[in-house]
Structures are given as C-alpha cells and as structure tokens.
Amino acid sequence: EEKRQVKQVAKEKLLEQSPNSKVQVRRVQKQGNTIRVELELRTNGKKENYTVEVERQGNTWTVKRITRT
C-alpha cells in the first residue's frame, strides 16, 4: 500500500515538471523511511531516467530529491 502511494507521489511530481510526458515506474526500493523510486520519463520519444527519493513525514509523503540518472 505505501509503495503504491509513493509511486503515485513520484509520478505526479515528475509530471508537474513536464506535463505532456509519459512516466513509467521501473523500480521501488525501501531504505528506512525513505523510498527510492526509479522512473522512466518519455517526452516525444526521448527517454530520460530519474530517481525520486520520497520520505515519510507524519502521514504524508514528501519528495526529498529528484536525480536524473
């Protein structure tokens, strides 16, 4: 359940930055209360990979860091 929520948060964050792209989740890793989500962003056939680190704060998820990989 929490992985599902985190995927959603990570996707939304990337789509905010580039709204007309397609996002696909590649991998989800958990480390303590930080969850790392690896995503693939496609814009006009151009692929970019991103890693989004999401942290739990109380009962909400906040995006800590977005890295292009």
Score class of each variant (00 low, 15 high):
R26K: 14
R36K: 15
E12D: 14
L15F: 04
Q17L: 15
R65H: 11
L15G: 03
E1N: 06
N33F: 06
Q31E: 13
E53N: 03
T43H: 13
N49G: 11
E40F: 07
K7N: 07
R68W: 03
L39K: 00
K11V: 15
T60R: 13
T60K: 14
E2L: 06
W61T: 06
K3W: 15
W61E: 02
N33S: 12
N59L: 08
L15W: 05
N59M: 09
N33P: 07
K11Q: 08
N20P: 02
Q57G: 04
E38K: 07
Q17H: 13
Y50K: 00
W61P: 03
I35P: 00
E40T: 12
K22H: 13
N33H: 06
Q31S: 13
K3F: 14
Q17G: 10
W61M: 09
L14M: 12
E40G: 02
R36S: 10
K7P: 04
E2F: 03
Q8S: 09
S18G: 03
A10I: 14
V25Y: 03
K64Q: 06
R56M: 09
V37Y: 02
E55K: 05
V37W: 01
V54I: 13
K13D: 01
Q5K: 09
P19Y: 01
L41P: 00
V25N: 01
E2T: 12
N49S: 11
K3N: 14
K11H: 04
E48T: 11
N44P: 06
Q24S: 14
Y50N: 00
K3V: 15
V6W: 05
K46L: 09
Y50G: 00
Y50W: 14
K11N: 02
G45C: 05
P19I: 05
Q24A: 12
E55P: 00
V25A: 05
Q31D: 13
R56E: 03
I35V: 09
E40D: 04
N33Q: 09
N20M: 07
I66H: 00
V37S: 00
V23C: 04
T34R: 09
R27V: 06
I66Y: 03
V54H: 00
N59S: 08
Q5Y: 08
Q8E: 08
E38S: 10
V28Q: 03
V63N: 00
E16F: 03
K11T: 12
E38L: 13
L41N: 01
T69N: 12
E40R: 06
R36H: 13
K64T: 14
Q29D: 09
V9Q: 06
K7S: 15
G45Y: 05
R4V: 07
S18F: 15
I35M: 12
Q29H: 14
K11C: 10
V6P: 09
K11I: 15
K13V: 13
K11E: 09
E16I: 05
T34V: 14
L14K: 03
K46S: 10
K11S: 10
V23W: 03
Y50T: 00
N59T: 10
T60P: 00
T51W: 13
R27C: 07
T43Q: 10
L41T: 06
E12P: 01
L39D: 00
R65A: 15
T51A: 09
T67S: 08
L39Q: 00
I66C: 03
K46G: 08
T51G: 01
Q57K: 11
Q5D: 10
V6Q: 04
K11F: 06
R42K: 08
I35W: 15
I66E: 00
E40I: 12
K22I: 13
T62R: 12
L39E: 00
R27M: 07
L41C: 06
Q8K: 14
E48F: 07
K64V: 14
E16R: 04
R26T: 13
V28T: 04
G32C: 04
E48R: 07
T43W: 09
P19T: 03
E16L: 12
R4L: 08
I35L: 09
R4Y: 08
G32V: 03
K3T: 15
K46Q: 10
N49K: 15
T60C: 06
L39Y: 02
K11M: 14
V9K: 07
E40M: 08
G45P: 01
V9N: 02
I35Q: 02
R36A: 07
Q8H: 09
T67P: 00
T62Q: 11
I35G: 02
L15D: 02
K47M: 11
R36F: 15
E40L: 10
Y50S: 00
V37K: 00
E12G: 07
L39R: 00
T43E: 10
R27I: 07
E2P: 05
Q31W: 12
K30L: 14
L15K: 07
N59G: 13
V25I: 11
V63W: 01
V25D: 00
Q5V: 11
T67L: 12
E1W: 02
K46F: 11
K22Q: 13
K11Y: 05
K7T: 15
R65M: 13
E2W: 07
T51S: 07
T62G: 08
T67R: 09
E55H: 09
R4S: 09
K7R: 12
V6C: 06
Q17W: 11
V9Y: 04
V37A: 01
Q8V: 07
E12M: 07
R27G: 11
K11R: 13
R68I: 10
N44F: 08
N49T: 14
T51I: 14
T69G: 09
G58R: 03
G45A: 06
E1P: 05
E55M: 10
R56T: 03
Q24G: 04
E53W: 13
E53T: 09
K3Q: 14
Y50P: 00
T67F: 13
Y50A: 03
T62I: 15
R27F: 11
T51L: 12
V23S: 01
Q57E: 13
S18K: 11
I66W: 03
V6L: 07
T62W: 14
E48P: 00
K64C: 05
Q29P: 00
N49F: 14
A10H: 02
V52I: 11
V37H: 00
Q8A: 11
K30I: 15
K30V: 14
I35C: 05
V37Q: 00
E48I: 10
L15M: 11
T51F: 09
S21D: 02
V23T: 02
E1D: 05
K46A: 08
V28R: 01
R27H: 10
Q29G: 07
R68L: 13
Q29A: 10
N59E: 12
T62N: 10
G32K: 04
R4K: 09
R27Q: 07
R26L: 15
N59W: 05
R4F: 10
P19H: 04
Q17A: 10
K64G: 04
V63L: 03
E53Y: 12
E55N: 04
E12H: 09
G32F: 05
R4H: 12
V54T: 01
E1S: 08
T60W: 13
I35H: 10
R26M: 12
K47Y: 11
E40K: 04
Q5E: 10
R42Y: 15
G32N: 05
Q31I: 15
N49L: 15
S21Y: 05
V9A: 07
K30N: 10
E16S: 08
V25F: 06
E2C: 08
K13M: 09
S21T: 05
V25M: 02
Y50F: 10
T60S: 14
N20D: 10
N44G: 09
T67W: 13
A10M: 04
T34P: 02
R4D: 13
E38V: 10
E12S: 10
